[in-house]
Amino acid sequence: MESKTNKYGVSHAIQRQIDRTSYLFLLPMLIFFLGFVIIPMGMGIFTSFFDYTMSSFRFIGLKNYLDLFSDPKFLRSFWNTFVIVVVSVPSVTIFSLWVASLIYDKNAWVTSTFRGVFYLPVVTGTVPVVVVWKWIFDKYAGILNYVLVSLGVIEKNIAWLGNKDTAIWCILVILFTTSIGQPIVLYISSLANIDNSMLEAAEVDGASNLRTFWQIKWPSILPTTLYVVVITTINSFQCFALIQLLTSGGPVYSTSTIMYYLYDNAFSLYRYGYANAMGVLLAIVIGLFSILQFKSIKSNVEY
């Protein structure tokens, strides 16, 4: 008898049947997953060890990876990516929490109006948002220069996207406006779900606003915060359209990101192997970040 059951306490015949139906259900998804995620990933890793260009395909071991670390343009792009993540993650998180806490307890109409406003850039779509910002930042025909000059903030028109000190901030501003929609929605629902009786009790006790926040609200919104941090991190790492459409990574690589540099190498310079090595490296970095963040979710939150 015993030999006929497995660790789940199910007989082998039944287990086979479960396996069959399960894999049938999984099959459609697995085909797409294997064909368009796993296999290309394998190919990407494989070819990253090759001198792979338009006309050559030659095994060169780790050379692509080693070259990356002595390529100042790549290092600059890596640094820029890092800056984008480090600036946008906290600013998005804090700002969206601030907005949400101001509006979550107002009447439904107010809440949904503000929520709609901040979600607007997401539904407008990346490209429409980017092209209108390009116009706003335009040195000659842009409204930003007009307003700032009229107000006396700046003396003369600035080429916002053509200045190595301002270009990255332009990118960050646009990224910011397109990134906070989802976090605000999440925070509103998370704040609204806090147990009211606890808040009332705190008020009766005469607890200060700050204390109420840290002791009661913060623990309940922690899971949301961690989720917001994870998605904002991943989005920031993948910042591409803004750069391709606005600055082509310039001036002097001040806005080049790993994603953009990868695209440029693959499609402007025909260096496929090198680009794939970059992709693998980026995947590893994002993977490490995600593991760290998933770990902290697990240790902080019960799901």
């Binding site: 064909g35 368009f36 190919m43 070819t47 991943i234 680009a275 992709g279």
Partner: peptide, 24 residues
């Protein structure tokens, strides 16, 4: 195993598979 692979793949940036995907 299936579930672990799915979770791992979720964190990866799509762009990593770019060039091979063109060939596929």
């Amino acid at each position: 195993i299936v579930f672990a692979v799915i979770i791992a793949a979720m964190a990866l940036p799509k762009q990593v598979v770019l060039v091979p995907l063109v060939r596929i």
